[in-house]
Structure formats: structure tokens, C-alpha cells
């Protein structure tokens, strides 16, 4: 597993924990422990996303850092074997 794959996997882990917590909070919106958990995961996810983006480019078409090329179009796309 190269560095890009590893950073992506770490981000996927954090974002999955966040997705799962959001579903729980949807049906338990006043659960204090879950809200604290959500805050903690949000920070971890944001930090990992920033690290990934700074090294391997944008994950969203509207947060491309201006440069000579629109790096959003760059390979690999998520479904590609090398992704």
C-alpha cells in the first residue's frame, strides 16, 4: 500500500465512523454522548482530509487550489483499480 492509498484508507475509516454516527444521531438527535463522539470524529476527519488534499489533490470539485491545471480531473478516479 503506497502513501496515497494509506492516507485514503485513513480518511475512509474516519469518514465511515462519521457517516455511521450521523445515522444514529438522526434518530437520537439529543444523545449527548453521541454528539460528543460526532464532534471528535469531525475533527479527525477534517485533519485527515486536509492531509490527503495537500499531498494528493482535491476530493471535491469546488476546493481545487488554483494552479496552471484544474487538478480535479486527474486520475485515479475512485472506481479505478489503482485507486
Amino acid at each position: 500500500m503506497d502513501e496515497r492509498e494509506e492516507l485514503m484508507k485513513n480518511l475512509q475509516i474516519a469518514d465511515f465512523a462519521l457517516i455511521d454516527t450521523v445515522l444514529y444521531l438522526d434518530t437520537h438527535p439529543s444523545d449527548k454522548a453521541a454528539l460528543n463522539h460526532y464532534d471528535r470524529l469531525k475533527k479527525i476527519s477534517q485533519a485527515r482530509e486536509n492531509e490527503y488534499i495537500s499531498k494528493f489533490g482535491p476530493l471535491n470539485s469546488t476546493n481545487v487550489e488554483s494552479s496552471d491545471i484544474f487538478s480535479w480531473v486527474n486520475n485515479p478516479w475512485p472506481w479505478e483499480v489503482d485507486a
Binding site: E5, M8, K9, L11, Q12, D15, F16, I19, P58, L59, N60, S61, W72, W77, P78, W79, A83
Partner: peptide, 8 residues
């Protein structure tokens, strides 16, 4: 769209 899969 986020340019990543939910699970690898």
C-alpha cells in the same frame, strides 16, 4: 461528489 469510495 466526493472523489473517494465509502469503502475501498
Amino acid at each position: 461528489y466526493e472523489k473517494k469510495l465509502e469503502y475501498p
